[in-house]
């Protein structure tokens, strides 16, 4: 049907059965060679690349998981410490509050006593002063009276 030389094709060259043995021969040859290339070079190489990548990714994931675990552990520790500190703080606050109250009460008592004392003292002194002043006035009026009498008697 179709020519094998430089003439143009008559009908479809695909249906020229005289070329089939040649085509199939070369196809088989190249298929076998290509299969050998695939089997010997391409697949080992690709699987190697893939396995390497997988390994690194898995390693990274494992490392990340480890770090995550440690972080959560640390977080737990921090939480615990925080809780402890909080309770301690509460305790301190409670005890110090009580102390302050007690001391305040004591101080109040003290100051009451002290003020009472002071008031007493002041009253005593006031009384003293009053007594003192009465005596002084008496004395002064006596002196004044004798002076007046002196003047009057002198003037006459």
């Amino acid at each position: 049907m179709a020519s094998t030389s430089d003439n143009s094709a008559v009908g479809m060259p695909q249906l020229d059965f005289s070329t089939f043995p040649n085509q199939i021969f070369w196809l088989v040859v190249f298929c076998v060679v290509l299969f050998a290339i695939v089997k010997l070079f391409i697949i080992p190489r690709m699987e190697d690349i893939f396995a390497n990548r997988r390994k690194i990714i898995d390693g990274n994931i494992a490392k990340a998981e480890e770090i995550r675990l440690r972080v959560s552990e640390i977080e737990k520790l921090i939480e615990e410490e925080l809780q402890k500190a909080k309770s301690q703080c509460d305790e301190i606050m409670n005890t110090s509050g009580n102390n302050i109250k007690e001391q305040m009460a004591l101080a109040l008592e003290d100051s009451k006593i002290a003020t009472a004392q002071l008031i007493n003292e002041a009253e005593g002194r006031l009384k003293e002063l009053r007594d003192g002043s009465e005596a002084a006035i008496e004395k002064m009026s006596e002196e004044l009276a004798s002076e007046i009498i002196n003047r009057i008697s002198k003037g006459r």
């Binding site: 020519s3 094709a9 479809m12 060259p13």
Partner: peptide
């Protein structure tokens, strides 16, 4: 000759 390209040479 659209089929010429398919000739086994």
């Amino acid at each position: 000759h659209p089929m010429d390209q398919f000739i086994i040479d």
